[in-house]
């Protein structure tokens, strides 16, 4: 039984065409309203999707860096920035005061308290950032954050808009 499953999988992997639409999972906005993840991609432009949490130090550094740059990037390329918090119900209520208190004005925030969207996007650890086109195809993705990584993302965005 198991063998059969593996053979099928192996076969599938060698044959598949790598194109996709975005997984549709229920997430919440900062007002606790339910939203389907695929509705994040209704716009015309590319989307930066960044998974983070209020207790994750490198995530906060990363969003600080994006928040500083995103206005400029959006003007040049139209890219949008969406941050998905995976804070569970221990810290989910802290997300709105945290982002406002931090002064992050240029980012759209959503909540994924049981990590359903994180799992659907195959994220292992946070921070994890993806760049997607408007159909939800993954153009680029990046795990963890070190200062200066935003320049690489900017290069990729520029390249995609050429």
């Amino acid at each position: 039984m198991k063998k059969l499953l593996f053979v099928t999988l192996a076969f599938m992997l060698t044959n598949i065409i790598w194109a996709q639409d975005i997984p549709s999972v229920q997430i919440k906005d900062l007002n606790n309203k339910n939203i389907l993840s695929k509705d994040l991609f209704k716009g015309e432009n590319m989307v930066i999707l960044s998974f983070w949490a209020t207790w994750c130090k490198p995530c906060i550094k990363e969003l600080d860096a994006y928040n500083e740059n995103i206005e400029e990037w959006a003007e040049e390329t139209g890219v949008e920035l969406i941050a998905i918090s995976v804070d569970n119900t221990r810290s989910m209520s802290r997300v709105a005061p945290f982002v406002n208190g931090r002064g992050w004005e240029n980012i759209q925030f959503y909540l994924d308290p049981n990590e359903d969207f994180k799992r659907a996007m195959n994220v292992v650890n946070i921070p994890h950032t993806l760049l997607l086109d408007r159909e939800g195809n993954i153009l680029w993705q990046h795990n963890s954050y070190t200062e200066g990584d935003e320049y690489e993302l900017y290069d990729v965005i520029k390249e995609q808009t050429k």
């Binding site: 099928t8 599938m12 598949i16 065409i17 194109a19 996709q20 639409d21 996007m121 994220v123």
Partner: peptide, 18 residues
């Protein structure tokens, strides 16, 4: 999976993982 494979070659389907 088997059905999907045969279709995936014509239509779009996606495999992701980690």
């Amino acid at each position: 999976f088997s059905c999907s494979i045969s279709k995936a070659q014509n239509n779009e389907g996606q495999v992701h993982g980690n």
